[in-house]
Design a binder for these strands. Structure first.
Length: 492
RNA sequence: GGCCCCGUAGUCUACCGGUUAGGACACCAGGCUUUCAACCUGGAGGAAGGGGUUCGACUCCCCUCGGGGUCACCA
């Protein structure tokens, strides 16, 4: 193991473009990013696309898009290049071939001609006998002549690593401490498939070495694979990086997070109106703790405070409730310019505004969003909560209609309110408020008896932001118009 | 099944041999208010079980139980 406390830290995030960036991957990326930034090191983005069937360019694009949205940039990798290019594994095949050749030369790897069917059959046999499935090393001791013969016959083959079969391999994990694995449980696994493409354990080991990675920070599901990688590294004479296996994120039913548990992709959260600041904050707290009682930590603060020693060992269960709470917090605490910018696509999608609002519209938009932001949980709700500022034909709350419009004298009250408001000049919050107070007094009604029907007539809802602010913003004309309209429609 | 990791309230966590076991989400009650939120105050709820070690264990060791991961020509 090399001593790397003096050298510059280099970490990597190596997603496989076989799906979108999910919550777990995003957190792994975040931890890598935080560690690199905290230590003034570099983050490498590497694309693990050796599964040619399932990998696609679209997924890569969406992963990149999600990382950008979260604010996680990388120093080397796709789009930015770097000294160890290429960063896409399917473009590094000659490198793996060369390393595999070295192993072959040293007799540390060998060709195996067993067919997939034969191996499956063998595995099934072991399973029936209640034994752990393993490769028995059929092709391990083939002579050079037999190998040549098989190849001459045109039989396809894979390359397997010659594993020691005894002794133990130690993973010195930063988060988990010393973990030892007995080598007798590790059989001769495949490093190059029959189509010539290398497997994950092999590419990962070769690239981590070639790219001079100092710390491998990844999900715990890779812990059991680490001794295999260490074995490869040992046979190739590589120094090995330090490892940190972060705990898994589990679904509420304690199983591995998957689509059936609802939203798992970062892009889905974006569409649900979650703010990137909130998702980053929530994800960071899932498995890492700043060491004190704070729950709201922005990314700069996290960067300052982050350390792998403070990452917990136990798996975390994913809980939307807390994310929702954090999102609400950022929604009302972030600068209004920022929230407005985030909200625009949502309002546009709902058909309330154009996708590129002009300066005047933008100003009004800010005022409106500022009014509704502290009573909603996400950007979709922002769009919904302020519809009446932009359209006249909004729906009315059914229950509200029954309670406030369809009872004796309701129409009269609405007309009185309209008449009173018509007199208000200038049409500003304080004036509106006192005019309505006077009216309620005159009619012998409680404030609520005036406000509730008024709110319903003007917004279609029984709840919402400060009524007087809404009225002032809407303007006299619209307000009185809506009052009369409600009267005609519901109070006949 | 073998191997590996993990085990503080429903959930995320603090503590790293001596605390009335702290905070947050969620939950319940109250307050504030023109409504609903937000916000404030209060409340209920926790060391998986059993053995050790120790003057003293949530904390260290062992066993049991529980959860997860892995054992692919997926990553």
């Amino acid at each position: 193991m090399r001593c790397n406390y003096m050298e510059k830290v280099r970490v990597r995030f190596a997603p496989s473009p076989t799906g979108e960036l999910h919550i777990g991957g995003a957190r792994t990326a975040l931890f890598n990013w935080l560690f690199a930034r905290n230590r003034g090191g570099s983050l490498v983005l590497r694309v693990d696309d050796t599964d040619r069937q399932r990998s696609s360019r679209q997924y890569l694009d969406s992963i990149i898009e999600s990382m950008r949205w979260l604010g996680l940039d990388w120093d080397e990798g796709p789009l930015v290049g770097g000294p160890f290019a290429p960063y896409v594994q399917s473009e590094r095949l000659p490198i793996y071939r060369q390393e595999a050749e070295k192993l072959l030369q040293k007799g540390m790897a060998y060709p195996c001609f067993c067919t997939a069917e034969a191996l499956a059959e063998q595995k099934e046999k072991f399973r029936r006998m209640g034994q752990p499935p393993r490769y028995t090393g059929n092709c391990r001791n083939l002579s050079e002549m037999e190998r040549e013969l098989q190849k001459a016959e045109g039989r396809s083959y894979v390359l397997r690593l010659l594993t020691p079969g005894d002794g133990e391999t130690i993973v010195d994990d930063i988060i988990r401490g010393r973990v030892s694995f007995e080598n007798r449980y590790i059989d001769d696994f495949i490093i190059i498939r029959s189509d010539g493409l290398p497997t994950y354990n092999f590419t990962s080991t070769v690239d981590d070495h070639k790219m001079e990675i100092t710390h491998v920070i990844r999900a715990e599901e890779h812990l059991s694979n680490t001794p295999r990688q260490l074995l490869i590294a040992g046979r190739l004479g590589y120094d090995t990086p330090l490892y940190a296996h972060v705990p898994m994120i589990l679904a509420p039913d304690h199983s591995k997070l998957s689509k059936r548990h609802g939203a798992t992709a970062v892009s889905e959260y974006r569409e649900m109106g979650i703010l990137p600041e909130a998702l980053v904050n929530y994800l960071a707290l899932l498995g890492w703790s700043p060491g004190d009682d704070r729950e709201i930590v922005d990314i700069e603060e996290m960067t300052r405070l982050f350390s792998l020693e403070r990452v917990s060992k136990n798996p975390a269960i994913y809980d939307l409730k807390k994310l929702t709470w954090i999102n609400g917090h950022y929604l009302r605490e972030l600068h209004i310019d920022k929230v407005t910018a985030y909200a625009v696509p949502f309002l546009a999608k709902s058909g309330l505004i154009s996708a590129e609002p002009g300066a005047d519209e933008e100003k009004r938009l800010q005022t409106v969003i500022d009014l509704v932001r502290d009573r909603v949980k996400n950007l979709c709700e922002v769009a919904d909560a302020c519809n009446y500022f932009f359209i006249d034909h909004f729906p009315y709350d059914e229950q509200g209609i029954k309670e406030h419009f369809q009872k004796e004298g309701a129409g009269e009250v609405l007309k009185e309110i309209a008449a009173a408001l018509e007199e208000v000049e200038p049409f500003e919050v304080e004036n509106i408020k006192s005019a309505l107070k006077q009216l309620s007094k005159k009619m012998g009604l409680k404030m609520a008896q005036v406000n509730l029907p008024l709110r319903l007539a003007v917004t279609g809802r029984t709840m919402g932001p400060d009524l007087f602010e809404i009225i002032a913003l809407l303007g006299k004309e619209k307000v009185t118009e809506r009052l009369y309209r409600a009267c005609e429609r519901f109070c006949s």
